[in-house]
């Protein structure tokens, strides 16, 4: 694992970007396969792509539960799965979004606004004794933000799970995103 791993040096997490046919039940097929084979999903994000016939599922998998090769091969056996890209963190752009509601007295409100600005987050909603903020960034960035907010007391929060795309080719690093389709079939 690379030093740029957004989950840290020792992480067993790996990102799969899975292009699927946009059909009823496809998410259930993918998640059921992971459950049935005993593979752990760390996070999962799914939404339609620019092409209405396809959706993209970004799955952060836990390689402690099974080898990546078996995961991608079993996944690829699903008829609705069109392509699997194994995204190397060194050659990908990754983002995650968090929304958090934090306890804030009138005096603390300013501190939280300042903290959010430092992280380049946004204030979404301000209440009498709480503030809801958001931040998009790398997972480790979000971890830091959450740790900082924790001292005020997080009432509730929701992370989206990671989404990722391959970095665009530079002259020197063409073919950065490996597609295991050739490998697996």
């Amino acid at each position: 694992m690379s030093g740029n791993n957004p989950y840290g040096q020792d992480s067993q997490h790996h990102v799969l970007s899975v292009l699927v046919q946009n059909r009823p039940g496809v998410l259930a097929r993918v998640s059921a396969l992971f459950a049935r084979r005993g593979y752990n999903i760390f996070s999962l994000a799914v939404a339609p792509t620019e092409h209405a016939d396809y959706s993209r599922i970004t799955i952060v998998v836990d390689l402690a539960s099974a080898p990546l090769e078996q995961m991608t091969k079993q996944l690829f056996k699903l008829i609705d799965v069109v392509r699997i890209s194994e995204l190397d963190p060194r050659h990908s752009v990754v983002r995650e979004l968090i929304m958090a509601t934090v306890r804030a007295t009138a005096e603390q409100r300013g501190q939280i606004v300042e903290l959010t600005n430092i992280f380049e987050g946004k204030i979404l909603s301000v209440g009498v004794d709480a503030v809801t903020v958001s931040l998009d960034g790398s997972p480790s960035n979000i971890d830091d933000f959450m740790a900082a907010l924790n001292q005020y007391g997080i009432v509730e929060s929701q992370r989206t799970g990671l989404v990722a795309l391959p970095k665009l080719d530079r002259a020197a690093s063409a073919g950065a995103a490996k597609s295991p389709k050739g490998k697996a079939s």
């Binding site: 039940g25 259930a28 097929r29 059921a32 396969l33 049935r36 056996k77 008829i79």
Partner: peptide, 16 residues
């Protein structure tokens, strides 16, 4: 039925 048989078929389909 498609939920129950998902992991024991190569593919299944509910026709709408």
């Amino acid at each position: 039925t498609v939920g129950i048989t998902r992991s024991i078929t190569k593919h299944n389909e509910l026709v709408m």
